[in-house]
Design a binder for these strands. Structure first.
Length: 437
RNA sequence: GUGGCUGUAGAUCAGUGGUAGAUCCCUUGAUUGUGGUUCAAGUUGUCGCGGGUUCAAAUCCCGUCAGCCACCCCA
């Protein structure tokens, strides 16, 4: 029985890797420009971390955590429950607290490019193992509304740098934790008595997380919410002023956005600014990325810090790499490309294999991407076919005549031109002919 | 977790009860030191898996797994 990759996972094969490396490379250089440093956290964490941060009632924690079962529980300490991380923020905050990074650093800016795991039913743009590019800014120095603007601008800049166009940025403010609580209360009472004729799903949302009703796709539910005319009524004066400054920051940077009072997030920890970037051509899973502020999370995860006058603030976002690639594909901008080889060395006779091996090694030491045919005693023709398949720009031939004269034949595979060169001048002759894109 | 559609060669797909096919890829040859084009020949396979109906199943039925799409949720 053939074993295939687990449900909802996919292999990234060598012919697809160029697009991924391109995305990663662009990300790293842009993060550097914005002064974000890479952080790598474990692929699994104690389940409690996600329950406490994302919220016990959220879908992600309730139904989508992939738990890790240890076969060897040797003591009580190892009896903890583990889960593959469903998102990147909670682990980063955990590390931030664990090493008391905030003691030294006024503001810490992290980024990660890493796989995430959720036990969902796969569909377009939704996998069980998927990859996120994320950024988090945490610290006493993370309370300025201009940082919100920077975060949003950074996520937009990344997408543009990847070549994605026609995406839509929506922003909203949920207000402070207190604003959120008040708003939830207000929403509940405003909807009380009116939810009886709604669908079971809407009722469920009303119970679990009223905010979800705001971006419901259910028409009856939409109508009901529309009728409430929410606007910014849920925000306190200070919350509203903060949001205004975020918008001004975005205006200053020329970032185009749409304020959407109905934009909410599925994770409990968000406060104040939330945003989402979507691309309509992706189908049902149209979010390329999303993020927001999560000021209370550090303390909530026991990072309670009374040593400094300023509270610890935090904001972050994550982009889905697979979805970015889908968007690029939809726009006809996917990066193809294969690993190209500079030179392939052919043995005219099987007994020259060792000499060929030596030439290949010599070239590699000079930084020339070189290879040879490792088939046993294959005819020259087959070796050339191999060279062609590998996309070698140059083929070197070491045959009987070359062996006698101490030369090597060098053939340009594009023009077909061939010449003999002394071994001492081989490297410079090759370097002169290498054409790299 | 719910629903719809699909599963046949490495890939894309045809085949609706009677001995498994096409194209591309791949292999070999035309070319006894030279690829990419062309021409000729050849191999593709538990018909996703398990069970049932039938003289006979890729085809019909049931189950299961996987993929796709949507709901839900989200990146």
């Amino acid at each position: 029985m053939k074993i295939s990759a687990p449900r909802g996972t996919s292999d990234i094969l060598p012919d697809q890797i160029a697009a991924w490396q391109n995305i990663e490379q662009i990300s790293r250089s842009l993060f550097k420009a914005y002064n974000y440093s890479e952080i790598r956290t474990p692929v699994f964490e104690e389940t409690g971390l996600f329950k406490r941060s994302l919220g016990e009632t959220t879908e992600v924690v309730n139904k989508q955590l992939l738990e890790v079962k240890s076969q060897r529980v040797t003591n009580a300490a190892e009896d903890a429950q583990f889960a593959l991380r469903p998102e990147g923020t909670a682990p980063v905050v955990r590390a931030y607290n664990q090493y008391d990074i905030g003691r030294e650093a006024f503001l810490s800016k992290f980024f990660y490019i890493a796989p995430m795991f959720r036990g969902e039913r796969p569909q377009k743009g939704r996998l069980r193992q998927f990859h996120q590019i994320g950024a988090e800014a945490i610290g006493r120095g993370a309370n300025h509304p201009l940082l919100d603007a920077e975060m949003i601008a950074l996520s937009v800049s990344l997408l543009k740098a990847f070549g994605v166009s026609d995406f839509k940025l929506k922003i909203n403010s949920l207000g402070s934790a207190e604003d959120k609580k008040n708003f939830a209360q207000w929403l509940r009472s405003a909807l009380e008595g009116k939810i009886d004729h709604l669908s079971d799903e809407c009722k469920g949302q009303y119970e679990r997380n009223v905010f979800r009703l705001l971006d419901s796709k259910d028409q009856a539910c939409r109508d009901l919410i529309q009728g409430l005319d929410i606007g910014t009524r849920h925000l306190s004066d200070s919350g509203r002023a903060y949001f205004e400054q975020v918008k001004q920051g975005l205006d200053q940077l020329g970032v185009i956005y749409e304020v959407s009072p109905h934009l909410v997030r599925g994770l409990d920890y968000y406060t104040h600014t939330v945003f989402e970037v979507s691309y309509a051509g992706l189908g049902a899973q149209d979010a390329l990325g999303a993020g927001g502020r999560y000021n209370g999370l550090i303390e909530q995860l026991d990072g309670g810090d009374r040593r400094f006058p300023e509270p610890v603030g935090a904001i972050g976002f994550a982009l889905g790499i697979e979805r970015i690639l889908l968007a690029l594909e939809a726009q006809g901008k996917s990066v193809a490309g294969k690993v190209s080889l500079d030179a392939f060395v052919v043995a005219g006779k099987p007994e020259f294999a060792a000499d060929v091996f030596g030439i290949v090694d010599l070239l590699r030491r000079q930084g020339i991407a070189a290879d040879m045919d490792f088939g046993v005693g294959r005819p020259v023709k087959k070796q050339f076919e191999q060279a062609n398949k590998l996309g070698a720009g140059i083929v070197l031939v070491l045959g009987e005549e070359e062996m006698k004269s101490g030369e090597v034949s060098i053939k340009d595979m594009v023009t077909g031109a061939q010449a003999r060169v002394g071994k001492d001048r081989l490297v410079e002759e090759i370097k002169a002919r290498i054409v790299r894109p």
